[in-house]
């Protein structure tokens, strides 16, 4: 297991390098540059050339990449060109908000999704199943900014239970978490239901029934354990998505976060910030998959055996 883990972590290094090249290139190939956002009316063309030189933007791309990567490996994310702050500071400001929102949303959608999926599977093809599956389907098709505004109208404007926007205290987290979580719930519930149904048809379930175990115990203690393996894989993949994919929700609820920081700096072509944000998100996806693999190994002895 340990040697597998080390190998698995070492494998992340080439992936990380490849991702960093892609991020760097994509960003520098899209038209537009940060200097345009810095220049104010009245400054001269020479000032532009000076600024380009100051930020090293006049050097060849491979050299710029080398400098950037070297610094990143030393833990220095650089200084934002347009925002004029150390990038690490900007990210440190945004990340806790994203982690709180994304983490809670993930927790909500896993708990809710697994529960609904189990209920639906136990009542297969009867009305609770239809109701739940219909409900989650409707929930997952609603665009999150729209769902956010609707929740806001109902719970904040209408009932006055939660603040409309902002990031003050836990009450302001409820609606954004619901908005993101409801979309994820659909996916988790559907996968849980399908894999529960699939697992129930396996031979070992028949054996358990033959041994005289109670059907509920079979479902929850044995079938669910099998069924959760694909669910965990999906959830692990969603970690990165949830950190970056919350942009629209962050904007609607006026919350700071990695998503808003990314969009803002992307529109200003603030290269160091965009690169750092994308790198964070890529790392989140990479670590998420790693976490998923480890969890799977812990849950499934067959995977563990294959690794040794």
């Amino acid at each position: 297991m340990t040697s597998w883990l080390i190998r698995r972590i070492l494998l992340l290094v080439p992936v990380f390098l490849a991702v960093s090249v892609v991020i760097f290139l994509i960003l520098h190939f899209i038209p537009g540059d940060p200097i345009d956002n810095l220049l104010k009316v009245g400054s001269s063309p020479q000032a532009r050339a000076e600024m380009e030189a100051r930020y090293g933007l006049d050097r060849p791309l491979p050299v710029q990449y080398g400098i950037w990567l070297g610094k990143v490996l030393h833990g220095d994310l650089g200084t934002a060109i347009v925002a004029r702050r150390p990038v690490a500071d900007l990210i440190a400001q945004a990340l806790p908000h994203s982690l709180a929102l994304g983490g809670l949303a993930l927790l909500f959608s896993s708990a809710m999704g697994v529960m609904l999926g189990v209920i639906a599977a136990l009542n297969r093809d009867r009305w609770p199943d239809r109701l739940i599956m219909g409900g989650v389907l409707a929930g997952s098709t609603m665009p999150s900014f729209w769902l956010g505004l609707i929740l806001m109208l109902v719970f904040s404007v209408g009932l006055g239970w939660f603040p409309i926007s902002g990031a003050r205290g836990w009450t302001s987290l409820v609606l954004p978490v619901l908005t993101i979580g409801l979309g994820g719930t659909a996916l988790v519930a559907r996968i849980t239901r399908v894999s529960m149904i699939e697992a129930s048809a396996r031979d070992f379930v028949m054996l358990l029934h033959a041994k005289g175990l109670s059907p509920l115990r079979i479902q929850l203690a044995h079938v669910l354990r099998h069924a959760l393996i694909p669910v965990v894989t999906i959830l692990a993949l969603r970690i990165g998505w949830i950190l970056g994919g919350a942009v629209t929700v962050e904007v609607v609820f006026a919350r700071p976060g990695l998503g808003t920081l990314l969009i803002k700096s992307l529109s200003q072509h603030d290269y160091p910030v965009v690169q750092a944000c994308l790198l964070m998100l890529a790392m989140a996806v990479m670590l998420g998959t790693l976490l998923g693999d480890i969890l799977q190994a812990l849950m499934d002895p067959r995977v563990r055996a294959a690794m040794a």
Binding site: L149, M152, V157, V251
Partner: peptide, 9 residues
């Protein structure tokens, strides 16, 4: 507040 409709509400 980046979203105008939120600000309005």
């Amino acid at each position: 507040i980046a979203e105008d409709s939120t600000a309005f509400l």
